[in-house]
Amino acid sequence: MSTAFGALRRRLLTPPISETTMKVRGFHVKNTESKKRLEQVGETFLQGYAFAVEAGSSAEAEELLETVPRDFRGFAYEGAAMGAVIHDALPGHGGRLAGLLSGRGRYHDYMIHVGIGWAMARLPRPLWPDIRTTDPLLRWLALDGFGFHQAYFKTSAYVRDPSPPAPFRWNGGHNHYTANAIDQGIGRALWFVGGTDPDTVAGLIRSYSEPRHADLWAGAGLACAYAGGATEQELALFARQAGEHRWALAQGAAFAAEARVRAGLVSEHTHLASRVVCGVSVEQASRMCNGLRPSVASRNALPAYENWRRDISARLASESTLRKGADQ
């Protein structure tokens, strides 16, 4: 049960909900429906964060997280991961993140690793968690979360006037790849900054230097399939606008499909995005991600995580070519 100290932690540590509104953030508003959805995502994230910092234990936080509506529950676990890391960084505290990952949170491991990155963006480096204790592949999603946070809260510097990424070092491995993983998170944030409007989001991506586009499109693909907010026609347009990065976009959407299947939270918009963007069903996309998941060892200079992403992109492109050949 939450204690008075837990309630105080929540009041002191939880950011105000107003910080997630489209008006405060200055994000593009496509329509009332998409605005409401994106703001609910932000509100749910902070709700999960508050559960993690206020609860008396990981188990109690988990019980609260399981009450969140299914379509948004993954965002609550993402927020809870950030809250758990912040909680563990307090003097005399610890074990909240480990408890989250060992409980039902293990089914939300994609989102929890992203949430770790949110906390890294807020904490001084000496208080960062030891990322080496997390999943060797999914830990790269922490940098995705870091990039999302920066683009979401420091939009002027990371989106409206994008500059080359600064060197970023961590102890998770392959420091030459960190900028790529951060860009994947920035791309995911662009789906929010652009208000789920395919033209606006595509325009934002094109404002970055070309070598960054593939990672940005992949992040946007994950967001369009996990967060939703676009119609079938809009998703089809978005896929066409990706051009040569069409299958990077699809890889991101496949990750979203796998994350929702693993958590048992598949939504209609994920079914739609998987079909339109990936060209396969949610179940097929999930099996593809699992079937291609590599061992920790890398087969070249790239991290195994990037090889995994490239293999998924290649398989989706190949499946599309086979289908077109069969239809002719």
Rank of each mutant, 00 (worst) to 15 (best):
residue 3 T to C: 13
residue 6 G to T: 09
residue 7 A to Q: 12
residue 9 R to T: 03
residue 12 L to K: 15
residue 13 L to K: 08
residue 14 T to M: 07
residue 22 M to P: 06
residue 28 H to D: 09
residue 29 V to F: 04
residue 30 K to I: 01
residue 31 N to A: 08
residue 38 L to E: 04
residue 45 F to P: 00
residue 47 Q to I: 10
residue 49 Y to F: 11
residue 54 E to A: 08
residue 56 G to T: 11
residue 57 S to D: 04
residue 60 E to A: 14
residue 61 A to N: 13
residue 62 E to Y: 04
residue 64 L to T: 02
residue 65 L to F: 05
residue 66 E to S: 15
residue 67 T to F: 09
residue 68 V to A: 07
residue 69 P to S: 10
residue 89 A to T: 12
residue 94 G to R: 07
residue 102 S to G: 03
residue 102 S to E: 12
residue 113 H to V: 00
residue 117 G to F: 04
residue 123 L to Y: 13
residue 125 R to W: 13
residue 127 L to G: 02
residue 132 R to I: 05
residue 138 L to C: 03
residue 138 L to K: 03
residue 139 R to M: 05
residue 145 G to L: 02
residue 148 F to Y: 11
residue 149 H to K: 12
residue 149 H to R: 11
residue 151 A to S: 06
residue 168 F to K: 02
residue 180 N to D: 01
residue 187 G to V: 00
residue 189 A to K: 00
residue 190 L to Y: 06
residue 195 G to R: 10
residue 196 T to A: 13
residue 198 P to E: 05
residue 206 R to C: 08
residue 208 Y to I: 01
residue 215 D to R: 00
residue 225 A to S: 15
residue 228 G to Q: 07
residue 234 E to K: 12
residue 234 E to C: 12
residue 244 E to Q: 11
residue 249 L to Q: 02
residue 253 A to G: 08
residue 255 F to E: 03
residue 268 E to D: 14
residue 274 S to I: 07
residue 276 V to S: 14
residue 284 Q to L: 12
residue 285 A to H: 13
residue 286 S to I: 03
residue 288 M to P: 02
residue 291 G to D: 14
residue 292 L to I: 07
residue 294 P to T: 14
residue 298 S to E: 09
residue 298 S to I: 08
residue 300 N to H: 15
residue 300 N to G: 15
residue 308 W to F: 09
residue 311 D to L: 09
residue 312 I to Q: 05
residue 313 S to H: 08
residue 319 E to H: 15
residue 322 L to D: 15
residue 325 G to K: 09
residue 326 A to L: 07
residue 328 Q to R: 11
